[in-house]
Design a protein around this nucleic acid. Structure first.
Lengths: 115, 115
DNA sequence: TTGACATATGCCGATATCGGAATATAATGG
DNA sequence: CCATTATATTCCGATATCGGCATATGTCAA
């Protein structure tokens, strides 16, 4: 029986994106097709580090690659981010809506009434 | 010098939310104030497991607690999710269709009208 | 063909995680 | 005051991660 200590980074987009370096990579790639070497230069990370992180992003489908001779052009695969977007969006009302602000207001008044 | 293997789960909301159980907890809590015992019952997790996960969520400010005698009422702290929301939102254009882009445009115009 | 270039992969040690079980802390009720 | 209830904390073994360094794979160019 296999007992996992922590979900693998390649489990899903949530885990892959937990690492800040990988978010930075996605940010850099989002500007358009980028080469590995260019990412190394831009982010100041080691080449193996970049390749490994890209491997994780590839594994969960967050990036797609186009092979062109000896270099690889990476691009962001947007739809893979949708699960995160949807999940977080379901909480929007907890910070955004007028109703919540009303709740907060009432709570505040309540606090003043019952110290 | 401390060399960290992987960002601590308490580093930020991204890391805290990477774990599926913690997302489930937040989903359950989002319905309103909930007690630890209620979460144990609803999610079928062990009590220490729930308490530990709540500890992580507390550490990154994703939940707030109200102490009431020997029980604790947890609630979601929406704003702590905004960083994730903002980051993912910046990729929206990578998956949106033309219609969605129109929505964005309208939303932008709307924002300008209603500050 | 051979060497330089671009990227991926393998091995390493240090570390924090996870769940389980036991235990600690704290508040309630009889 | 004591047993019970509610929640948090500690210790444990197994595991996957991360960065660094070395190396493998693959491709172009002279």
């Amino acid at each position: 029986m296999v007992l996992m200590a922590r979900s693998a980074t390649t489990t899903d987009a949530f885990n892959a994106v937990a690492e800040a370096s990988r978010r930075d990579l996605l940010d850099a790639i989002s500007t358009g097709e980028v080469t590995v070497g260019e990412l190394v230069d831009r982010l100041g990370l080691s080449q193996p580090q970049v390749s490994k992180h890209l491997g994780v992003l590839r594994a969960v489908g967050l990036v797609l690659v186009r092979v062109d001779g000896r270099r690889r052009w990476y691009r962001v695969n947007g739809p893979a981010l949708q699960p995160i977007h949807e999940w977080v969006r379901s909480f929007e009302r907890t910070w955004n809506t007028r109703l919540d602000r009303l709740d907060d207001l009432l709570a505040e008044l309540n606090d003043k009434d019952t110290p």
